[in-house]
Amino acid sequence: MDSHAQVDPRRHSGDTWIVIPLYNEGSVIARVVAELREHFEHIVCVDDGSTDGSADAAEAAGARLIRHPVNLGQGAALQTGFDYVVKQPGARYLVTFDADGQHRIEDAMLMLDLAKHDDVAIVFGSRFLDDRTNPGVLKKIVLQTAVWVTNKTTGLHLTDAHNGLRVIRTDAAAQIHLEQDRMAHASEIVMKLGRTKLPWREFPVEVLYTDYSKAKGQSLLNSVNILVDLLVR
């Protein structure tokens, strides 16, 4: 892994589609897409009814744009992206990537290396496998609550449940049908991927907490929503 600097930066470009759920990230999405374009050919932005020109910015930056006619939620946007990508000829892997630029592309590349090398269907990014990421006390409470609920309800044992960076092989993605439109979809993805019984791994990633992503990150109250969404159907 130490020699990855010399490896072809576009080695995953041919068979990997990036899926970005997009909602009102106009100030950052163009840069995120442009950086991804250096490594990947196929970038799908699912615009979830943005009202700030995010969609046009993403399209101008070179993303394949799919527009929801109304705002449905991040889970719904991910599912739309899955449905689109699994139909594309040549698509073997998809990577879910957050639109606000909190993920590192290098992490995504290494996760794809791992998925292909170990032939696993799913690689979850985890910010708690090493100490690069410092989310702060409140956010840590929220995230650890989510991890606890997810592990209780899914039977998998993850260290980080609500990380937007995931590598999913298309045969696994084709078996997923998300019904939680809002934030509980992160746990739902884990649960439904777990039910496929396909092999999975966790991979340490760094989450970049910019002022921007801090301002709109998950609030403490949202952990209540996540709990209720999971328990009350």
Partner: peptide
């Protein structure tokens, strides 16, 4: 409400994918 929202989601997704 949950059921109706789910139906709206399916409909909107069909529209988005058909347009794509």
């Amino acid at each position: 409400n949950v059921q109706v929202n789910h139906r709206i989601t399916l409909l909107a997704r069909e529209i988005a994918l058909a347009r794509a």
